[in-house]
């Protein structure tokens, strides 16, 4: 059971802050190998950061949506902008257009943003395009806060797209980039490069990819876990 495995590694949770205890408690074993895809809760998310180095760079915003049973409920979407004192030098500002300190009215600090995010995710499967990077960004904050890291199962839509692709060659660089995949799967690309916008696009992509896998017999979490992408 996942829960046992979690407690084994992390020890008892008494020392942890409340949000983290609740987070760990959510891994109650309800998600198992036989859970049908329809019942799996996915959190599809994206972060915008000051750069691409998770040790140095900081989170500027987190956007996330929940996908379950082929549906995204917009009432449950997360879109938070983070107040950063850190001044960026990176070129990513040009990509996403968020300057630290803009969106002042809504800004929350990094710790609060990650707390919200953890509370939002609970035991869902975390999904993103090249999700490892975004998870490492969150983990970086968690490590500084409480010395912990996320324990969720994760699913990378880029890897999933490779798995879905009929041709197993890796034709050209960028074939499995989000832009190219959006074109391939006819997903309209407005709001690219805002965290929430990308999260939403990725969520639609996830559903389209899962549908294709399902038609090939991938029907449960176990089936999903067996292939690459996890």
């Amino acid at each position: 059971m996942i829960f046992n495995w979690v407690t084994k590694i992390l020890g008892t949770s008494r020392d942890h802050p409340e949000f983290w205890r609740q987070y760990l408690a959510s891994f109650d074993g309800t998600l198992g190998k036989r859970t049908p895809i329809e019942e799996i809760g996915f959190v599809v998310f994206d972060t915008e950061t000051t750069g691409l180095d998770s040790r140095k760079d900081r989170i500027l915003s987190i956007g996330a949506v929940k996908v379950q049973n082929w549906q995204i409920d917009l009432r449950q979407s997360l879109d938070c902008y983070v107040q950063q004192s850190y001044q960026p030098v990176g070129e990513t500002i040009e990509v996403h257009g968020i300057l630290p300190g803009t969106h002042n009215e809504y800004n929350i600090d990094e710790i609060e943003a990650v707390k919200q995010f953890v509370g939002y995710c609970h035991n869902s499967i975390l999904v993103g395009h090249h999700v490892a990077f975004d998870i490492s960004m969150v983990n970086q904050v968690l490590k500084g806060m409480i010395g912990q890291r996320l324990v969720n199962k994760r699913l990378d839509t880029a890897a999933l797209a490779v798995r879905v692709s009929e041709k197993k060659d890796y034709e050209q660089p960028g074939t499995y980039g989000l832009d190219t995949l959006c074109k391939k799967y006819k997903i309209p690309m407005s709001d690219r490069h805002t965290a929430a916008g990308d999260a939403f696009i990725t969520a639609v992509l996830l559903m389209k990819l899962l549908a294709r896998l399902k038609s090939r017999g991938v029907k449960t979490m176990g089936d999903l876990l067996r292939g690459p992408g996890f």
Binding site: G63, L74, S77, D79, D191, A195, G197, F200
Partner: peptide
Amino acid sequence: MENTIPRRVYDF
């Protein structure tokens, strides 16, 4: 706060 995703639904 104004959320990006509902905004795109709105625009549609």
